[in-house]
């Protein structure tokens, strides 16, 4: 895929929709396109994080370590991004991400990520929106779980 095509592809991702083409070109040029085979791991919980990933093609699962082994908490698809928590908050990876199908991602380094968010507030807003949605969903899950526990008479 050529750089031009890649810029087109990036433009279709909501996160980057409003970024000017020349910056998208830099993003496309400096970010690494990585292909994973099904079952390959993007990163593991507890690893130090230095980059975020945008899913370009395929599906990946997000796994959290529990006492009973890894637990799938979500599935991410085309145009989703993962791995941003570790670089935003400077903490080790909070979950493991593994490819379910053949997967293509765009790997964005921490450095570039911050540069883009600093230069394009729209992008920061977009990330905030996605993070907000995730928080909302997590809260809903928590509410539901608490309710079920209460029903089961545990708490």
């Amino acid at each position: 895929m050529s750089l031009h095509e890649e810029v087109e592809l990036l433009r279709r991702i909501p996160l980057f929709a409003r970024i000017e083409p020349s910056k998208l070109k830099l993003l496309a040029f400096t970010s690494e396109r990585l292909a994973y085979k099904a079952g390959d791991v993007l990163f593991r919980q507890g690893d130090p994080g230095d980059s975020a990933y945008i899913i370009v093609e395929g599906e990946a699962e997000i796994l959290v370590n529990t006492a009973d082994g890894p637990l799938r908490v979500a599935v991410v698809r085309k145009n989703d991004f993962v791995g941003e928590i570790a670089i935003l908050c400077d903490v080790p990876r909070t979950a493991t991400v593994a490819a379910i199908t053949g997967l293509t991602t765009l790997r964005i380094s921490k450095e570039l990520f911050f540069r883009l968010t600093a230069e394009f507030p729209q992008m920061a807003v977009e990330i905030m929106r996605v993070l907000g949605q995730r928080l909302e969903r997590t809260t809903a899950d928590l509410r539901e779980a608490t309710a079920r526990l209460r029903q089961a008479g545990i708490s």
């Binding site: 690494e32 396109r33 990585l34 292909a35 994973y36 390959d40 991602t105």
Partner: peptide, 9 residues
């Protein structure tokens, strides 16, 4: 040969 770019790990 060359290790392929874009192939994870």
């Amino acid at each position: 040969g060359k290790i392929a770019y874009g192939q994870a790990q």
